[in-house]
Computed example of a mutant assay.
Amino acid sequence: MLKRLSLRFVAVFALCLLVTSAMLWPSSPQNLAVEHRLLTSGALAAWRSGRLIVLVRHAERCDRSDNPCLGPIDGLTRPGGASAAAVGSAFHALGMPHSDVFSSPATRTLQTSRLMFAKVHVLPDRQTLCGRAIVHDVYTHKLVGRNLLLVTHSGCISDLERALGYPHADNAEYGSSLFVELTAHGKLKVLGSVASQDWHLALEQLHAYAGTGITRNGLTDL
Rank of each mutant, 00 (worst) to 15 (best):
H168G: 14
N31H: 13
H58M: 01
S83T: 14
E173T: 10
R146V: 01
T20Q: 15
C62K: 05
V135L: 08
N147T: 03
T215E: 02
P79F: 11
H185N: 10
F102S: 07
V12D: 06
L123V: 07
S103R: 00
L160T: 01
D63Y: 15
I73A: 12
S83R: 12
L148W: 02
H168C: 15
T77I: 09
T128G: 12
K189R: 11
A195P: 04
L38E: 02
P105N: 15
V144Q: 12
R61T: 05
S65L: 02
A85K: 06
R216T: 09
L17C: 15
R37I: 07
R48S: 04
T40A: 14
L148M: 03
R37F: 01
T128E: 13
V120Q: 07
L182M: 12
S41N: 10
A133P: 01
M96Q: 05
A85G: 09
N147D: 00
R61C: 03
H207D: 03
L129G: 11
F91K: 04
C16N: 14
C130I: 07
S49Q: 13
L219E: 04
S28Q: 10
T140L: 13
L15P: 07
L70H: 06
I134M: 00
L44N: 04
A82Q: 13
I157S: 06
S193D: 10
L148R: 00
V120P: 05
T140D: 12
L110A: 09
